[in-house]
Amino acid sequence: MTTNDHSIGAETGYRRHALVSLFRMYEAVKWTLLWLPRFWKARSQLACLAAMSECERRDIGLTSCDLENAFALPIDRDPTEMLAQVVTDRRLRREH
């Protein structure tokens, strides 16, 4: 009887592991398929920022150098997250 209980527990563990693996595979496929739309959206947002004048960018806390750095990021990184962090850091430095 103990052996049967052990094998049932092992089977449950295997199923849980299989479900976790399946979920991770699903998330990886979803991330891969949705990568291109995210990439185009981020690049179009960068293009809009690049089209702004230096004065407009300064109003929101960015410089042209920040945009150049954002364009230099690897394509799998979201440049808008980096720019938001730059703006936040500058605001915090001004407040202190």
Results as ranks from 00 to 15, higher is better:
A50F: 02
M1E: 02
D78K: 08
R15C: 02
L49K: 10
Q85S: 12
A51G: 13
S7Q: 07
R16C: 06
A72F: 03
R38S: 14
I8H: 12
A70F: 03
W40I: 09
R94L: 11
W31F: 08
A51T: 09
K30F: 04
C65N: 12
L49N: 07
E11W: 02
L19C: 11
V86D: 00
E56R: 11
A70L: 04
V86M: 00
R15H: 06
D66I: 04
W40V: 03
I60K: 07
R15S: 06
R43K: 15
A18D: 02
D66K: 05
E11Y: 05
E81C: 09
R15N: 08
W35Q: 04
M52V: 04
F39D: 03
T3Y: 10
R94Y: 04
P74D: 14
T2Q: 14
V29A: 12
Y26C: 09
A84G: 06
R77F: 05
R16N: 09
C55H: 15
R91D: 08
R57D: 04
T88Y: 08
A18M: 06
E54G: 08
L49Q: 10
R90A: 06
I60Q: 05
E95P: 00
C65H: 11
E95T: 01
G9E: 09
T3A: 08
W40D: 03
R91W: 12
R38T: 02
F39R: 12
D66E: 12
A84D: 13
Q45G: 11
F23R: 15
D76H: 13
E56I: 07
T88Q: 12
D5H: 11
M1R: 03
P37D: 10
L19R: 15
H96P: 02
Y26H: 13
W35H: 07
L34F: 10
M52T: 04
R24C: 04
A70R: 02
S64G: 15
Y26W: 13
Y26E: 14
A70M: 05
A72G: 00
R38P: 07
P74T: 09
G61Q: 01
R77M: 09
E95V: 00
P37Y: 10
T2G: 14
T12H: 06
R94M: 06
M82T: 04
R43W: 12
E81F: 10
N4Q: 09
G9R: 12
A18I: 01
W40H: 13
C48V: 13
A28Y: 01
L33A: 10
L83D: 00
E95I: 01
R16K: 15
D78N: 15
H96D: 02
P37V: 06
A28C: 01
R16H: 10
A28K: 03
E54Y: 10
F71Q: 03
A18T: 00
A10K: 11
A50H: 13
D59I: 04
S21C: 12
G9M: 11
I8D: 05
G13K: 13
M25V: 08
A28P: 00
G13E: 10
R58P: 00
E95G: 00
R38D: 12
R57L: 15
N69R: 05
A84I: 03
M1C: 05
R93M: 05
R94W: 03
G61H: 03
K41Q: 05
L92Q: 14
